[in-house]
Write a protein that binds this DNA or RNA. Sequence first.
DNA 1: GTAAACATACCAACCGGTTGGTATGTGTCT
DNA 2: AGACACATACCAACCGGTTGGTATGTTTAC
Lengths: 212, 212
Amino acid sequence: MNDTTPRSSARERLLQSAMTLIRSQGFAATSVDELCKAAGVTKGAFFHHFASKEALGVAAADYWSETTSALFAEAPYHAPEDPLERVYAYLDFRAELVEGETYEFTCLAGTLVQETFDTSPLIREACHRSIAGHTATIEPLVQAALDARGIGAPYTASSLALLIQTVLQGGFITSKAQGGPEPVLDAIAHLRRYFTFIFEGGETPAATKSAA
Amino acid sequence: MNDTTPRSSARERLLQSAMTLIRSQGFAATSVDELCKAAGVTKGAFFHHFASKEALGVAAADYWSETTSALFAEAPYHAPEDPLERVYAYLDFRAELVEGETYEFTCLAGTLVQETFDTSPLIREACHRSIAGHTATIEPLVQAALDARGIGAPYTASSLALLIQTVLQGGFITSKAQGGPEPVLDAIAHLRRYFTFIFEGGETPAATKSAA
DNA sequence: GTAAACATACCAACCGGTTGGTATGTGTCT
DNA sequence: AGACACATACCAACCGGTTGGTATGTTTAC
């Protein structure tokens, strides 16, 4: 092992660049040449590592899965002992991630699947794996909270876990349209309130207050 | 007025084709040539009506606004006398629209803004106009329901109206990823329940039932 | 007749992908 | 230990086709 070992391989740098470029421009608008230039490699290197541009799309979605699952594995929302508090902590964590440029807090899989779901089954499946995979990791969190309070249908862990992802994806879109993070943060706040109603019953809003 | 009057102009046919193609393939992946072929016009006609491909994108978003506002103006959800029932009817109507091929029930503005928000301010603004414009039409519905029950902060009509759009946009994405309409329908059902909690207080789920 | 609504022909730049090639390992038989 | 076979990682140049866009007609409506 010596200094000639590249700090990061061409493949890795291409995937890193793909994460940035695809999230800010979309997949179709990002050319292979542009990707190579951003990663500082040649086209030959690109097609050595990826059979086609579509294969890069699949690899980018898989790489996104790895990157995000590492991030969430280390996140602080696993700490609380109360299962419901872990769910709230997860939502708070997702809200904390909303900062910086818009493309930085949006989801690669969501962006990618939007423009390829009908034209590339392989990319669609990779994006589905990414979203469904993360959803599966928070399902036990929700399940534990449900069990702790004996809450049943129509509130299932899988349905609520997917709802969280749905609301976040939608928030990314309305935030992109408005040009600011407010819509997604507002949506997370509503989602948190929905969970409070489900898990803690919540007082009737009309009963709490009506005018200042 | 005679038969030589074109049933629909080249411009109209281009916008119609754009609605279909952009929703199923995305904006960047849809070429001007493809658009012309689908609309049955030549490239000369295209650039006679639109200064550039970007201008077509802006026009498509505006056309989408017109099309959808006509659809919603005629929709049956305005009928109920009770303001809250109108909100529920709106949600039910949105669920009824979810049928056919995936691209058919998804939103042009949402798809378009996702890949252009960072590269084309004009298209981004047109998509924002489309989404915010529709949101503004349902805001009075929510406001009336809020007023009827004296519900105040943190439940504002603008915030709740935008939440509906956010949840729908997110549902379109998770539905695209999964390859079926279930996620968006499931999300609408949750949203309806959230509104029930807000407006009707709702019983604590844990108190209603826990095991079959 | 003239202005808008189209069509035809064309262009330079760029697209995804392929080519033949080099440099650097890595195992493996003797 | 050294030579041969093979694999991996990468590169510069190039390919045919497609891209968004233009320049210049021709037809139609009033």
